[in-house]
């Protein structure tokens, strides 16, 4: 049976040589966690099932830095590597694949031009395209929305883009379904309501998305403890849980988290 995956996420500031991994709490109070390829190597040794690199500066000029980070990482890290941030075309995706990435993640650029998903998946396969969705709860119900029941009442989820700075009016669950039909191989689903709060994953959001698409859903946003991972795996069909801060600042080691989950009946790779 397929194991549930634990995925550390490296938010990379590529404005310095070699880049640096950062983590902000609600876009304030930025903390530095380390050098991307070194941190990736540590997480690989600790048992990460996959590693996600997000270029939070997402500027075209810094693609070269990301390419060198991935090249360096892929020399000694032998689990899948996913790379995202500012990839706008199949040509830009190729640079990242050629550096050793296995998957690319697209967000804003796919919302602006959905055909991008097909353009990349036709060439590199569905498994190589992860569509990242930043979703925010909206309690004002409108016709045609994918309504989700939550303890706080029924809501729908709106997609954001430009790193959470702008809203699209697009229904996040509907977009996940469309992304699947366009050739996405996976959905990286971040709850904006939970991101940075340390309150745990948004269970109703993750559950709804995982039930309504057949491709894997990666839960993201709000994870502060192994209990949060346990909860998302017990209550939803999420294939993977993504976290950053709890691993970056030495609070939890990936191997310890996986042992914790295994002892409680979750199928993970040890």
């Amino acid at each position: 049976m397929l194991a549930r995956r634990i995925i550390p996420c490296l938010d990379c500031d590529l404005g310095v040589p070699g880049g640096r991994v950062v983590k902000g709490i609600e876009f304030k109070e930025i903390r530095y966690a380390g050098v991307p390829w070194q941190l990736a190597g540590k997480y690989y040794e600790d048992g990460a099932d996959e590693i996600v690199f997000l270029d939070i500066t997402a500027s075209h000029e810094r693609r070269e830095t990301m390419v060198s980070v991935i090249k360096k990482t892929s020399e000694s890290v032998f689990v899948p590597l996913a790379v995202g941030g500012g990839i706008r075309s199949a040509k830009e995706a190729r640079e990242v694949f050629n550096a050793g990435a296995d998957k690319i993640t697209v967000n804003t650029s796919a919302l602006k031009r959905p055909e991008l998903i097909s353009e990349i998946s036709d060439r590199y396969g569905n498994q190589a395209v992860v569509v990242a969705i930043d979703a925010k709860r909206r309690y004002t119900l409108e016709p045609g929305r994918e309504v989700v029941q939550t303890p706080e009442g029924p809501c729908w989820f709106e997609c954001s883009f430009y790193g959470g700075r702008k809203f699209t009016g697009i229904d996040a669950v509907a977009w996940a379904k469309r992304a699947q039909s366009l050739g996405a191989g996976e959905i990286l689903l971040t709850s904006m309501d939970r991101d940075g709060t340390y309150d745990g994953f948004d269970i109703p959001l993750t559950d709804a998305a995982a039930k309504r698409v057949r491709i894997p859903v990666i839960a993201s946003g709000g994870c502060a403890s192994p209990d949060h991972m346990l909860e998302v795996f017990q209550k939803t069909d999420a294939s993977a849980a993504l976290a950053a801060s709890i691993f970056h600042f030495g609070e939890w080691n990936i191997q310890d988290v996986k042992r914790y989950l295994k002892e409680r009946g979750v199928n993970v790779r040890l």
Partner: peptide
Amino acid sequence: MIPQMGWNSLSIKRPVQVLEGISDKDM
């Protein structure tokens, strides 16, 4: 789930040289 994407364990059917050191619990 299609594609099957992720880590799965093996059921080894016969001993072959390339699978030396690999057991059923490995993913």
